Simulated assay, not measured.
Amino acid sequence: MQNDTFIHPQALVEPGASIGAGAHIGPFCHVGPEVVLGERTRLISHVVITGATTIGSDCTIHPQAVLGGPPQSTGHKGGRTTLTIGDKCIIREFVSINTGTDFGRGATTIGDNGHFLAYVHIAHDCAIGNNVTMTNGATLAGHIEVGDFVGIGGLSAIHQFTRIGHNAFIAGGSMILGDVIPYAMVGGNRATLRGMNVVGMKRSGVPKAEILKLRQAYRMLFDRTHPLAENIEAAREKFADSVYAMKVIDFLTARGKRQFTLPPLKGAADDDADDQD
């Protein structure tokens, strides 16, 4: 029955772990004493979940994933920190996700409907939104913020303290050293902006008229004939009626610890998106 919890006799679930109704724990899994496992979440086999880790309902976790391990940080002094993963996440083979640090947020958090493919690594103190996809081998350093509906291509690596805005798309093999504005496409070794993520915006329901405004705002914001601060104020006035454009403008003004936003590839702010709607 759906509400029957299954724990394979060759799995180790330590005393103190909380296992939700309908959860399935396959052979050779190890679930630590502070773990909370949501309803109907499935650990296929050979999964290790340790630390103060809470996983939501209806998740699927594949073999060799290690969740809730201590942060890989020499500054961490061993204090109790946490990992929280939302509902309906798919975590594939050899994914590793660490808890927070006692000098940082103290927590690593992941939203709902995430899809993390094989060999993804998410380091300490990251805050990941909903509907995020990270493909094979993508790596996040510590203290990174990732918005909703973000796609991160395989073998990409993102520098610590970086912010990735909502609906951004990062091409495979990219090296991200600075913040990525919402709705953007970025790519390259020492990545640069390559235009707006039109396909991603359409898929998430952004109206066509708003996509056009966003592309106009992008060109204005990154017009290198004027200082960025001046462009921000001009765009704020011109696009005050666009919720989506204002998200980009607010992102640029609420600077993170990196204090660096990825620039466009070209000297002028062309929008290289291949969709001409």
Score class of each variant (00 low, 15 high):
Met196Glu: 02
Asp102Gln: 08
Leu212Ala: 13
Asn3Met: 13
Lys208Val: 13
Ala209Ser: 12
Ile211His: 10
Gln64Leu: 15
Val48Ser: 14
Ile158Glu: 00
His143Val: 00
Ala118Thr: 14
Lys88Arg: 15
Gly111His: 03
Cys29Tyr: 10
Ile158Tyr: 02
Thr133Arg: 10
Pro33Leu: 11
Ile44Gln: 09
Leu43Ala: 04
Ser45Phe: 03
Gly147Phe: 04
Asp125Tyr: 09
Ala21Trp: 03
Ile25Asp: 11
Thr74Cys: 06
Asn113Ser: 13
Lys208Trp: 02
Tyr183Ile: 00
Ile25Arg: 14
Gly111Pro: 09
His121Ser: 12
Ile7Phe: 03
Val95Lys: 05
Arg215Pro: 00
Thr41Asp: 14
His46Gln: 14
Met134Gly: 12
Val146Glu: 01
Glu210Gly: 06
Ile170Thr: 01
Pro9Thr: 11
Gly75Val: 05
Ile128Arg: 03
Ala234Asp: 05
Ile232Glu: 05
Met134Trp: 10
Val47Ile: 04
Gly111Glu: 05
Ile176His: 08
Leu212Trp: 08
Arg219Cys: 07
Gly22Gln: 10
Thr261Ile: 08
Lys77Ala: 05
Asp125Leu: 00
Ile49Asn: 13
Asp223Tyr: 13
Gly205His: 00
Thr225Asp: 15
Gly165Asp: 00
Ile110Arg: 02
Gly22Phe: 04
Thr109Arg: 03
Ala123Thr: 11
Cys59Lys: 12
Val36Cys: 07
Met246Val: 12
Gly16Met: 15
Leu262Ser: 02
Gln276Tyr: 06
Ile7Val: 13
Leu37Asp: 07
Met201Asn: 01
Ala235Val: 09
Pro264His: 04
Gly16Phe: 13
Tyr218Ala: 02
Phe103Cys: 02
Arg40Phe: 15
Ile49Met: 12
Thr41Ile: 15
Ala52Gln: 14
Ile7Leu: 09
Asp179Pro: 04
Ile122Pro: 05
Val186Trp: 07
Met175Asp: 12
Asp275Trp: 12
His115Gly: 14
Pro70Leu: 09
Ala127Val: 10
Ala273Thr: 04
Phe94Gln: 14
Ala268Asp: 09
Met196Ser: 04
Gly205Ser: 08
His121Phe: 09
Ala157Trp: 06
Val199Arg: 00
Leu83Thr: 00
Arg40Glu: 14
Asp223Gly: 14
Ile128Thr: 08
Asp271Glu: 03
Gly26Ile: 14
Gly106Ser: 07
Gly111Ser: 02
Ile110Pro: 07
Asp250Val: 13
Ala21Leu: 10
Gly256Tyr: 06
Pro70Asn: 11
Gly188Gln: 04
Lys213Val: 02
Ile55Met: 13
Glu14Asp: 12
Ala127Pro: 06
Met246Trp: 08
Gln160Tyr: 02
Thr101Pro: 04
Leu12Cys: 12
Ala141Tyr: 01
Thr135Gly: 05
Leu265Tyr: 01
Gly69Leu: 14
Asp125Lys: 06
Ile164Gly: 03
Asp271Phe: 07
His226Gln: 12
Leu67Gln: 08
Asp270Gln: 00
Ala123Gln: 03
Ser96Gln: 02
Ile152Ser: 03
Gly153Leu: 01
Leu12His: 08
Gln2Pro: 15
Asp241Asn: 10
Leu43Arg: 00
Gly165Lys: 01
